[in-house]
């Protein structure tokens, strides 16, 4: 499950796991009308996997969503620490 890491001075970051949106391999002249914005998640479809650094009970750990396969997961986003509600 979550693995501990020693934080350095750089802000630890994570991100999507697996092939993301294909990096523009096509020549620039190709017309690409595809909107850059990711579409909204769909219910009944797989949750995109990601890794993220986390604070957990006194330590810093690295978490990957797919480590939680076999369990129910509630993933909550919020605007920021110390925001009021």
């Amino acid at each position: 499950m979550p693995t501990e890491f020693k934080p350095g001075c750089a802000r630890p970051t994570g991100g999507p796991v697996g092939e993301g949106p294909a990096k523009n391999a096509a020549p620039k002249t190709t017309i690409q009308e595809k909107p850059r914005e990711a579409s909204m998640i769909k219910v009944g479809k797989k949750a995109p996997d990601f890794t993220a650094p986390a604070y957990l009970k006194g330590g810093f750990v690295s978490v990957q969503l797919s480590e939680y396969l076999g369990k129910w997961v509630v993933l909550c986003f919020y605007p920021g620490d110390f925001t009021f509600v």
Partner: peptide, 18 residues
């Protein structure tokens, strides 16, 4: 910032609701 999104993900990794 991120808005207040809440996702329920089942044991197969499937989003059941948000």
């Amino acid at each position: 910032v991120e808005t207040r999104g809440r996702f329920i993900i089942d044991p197969d990794g499937v989003v059941q609701g948000y």
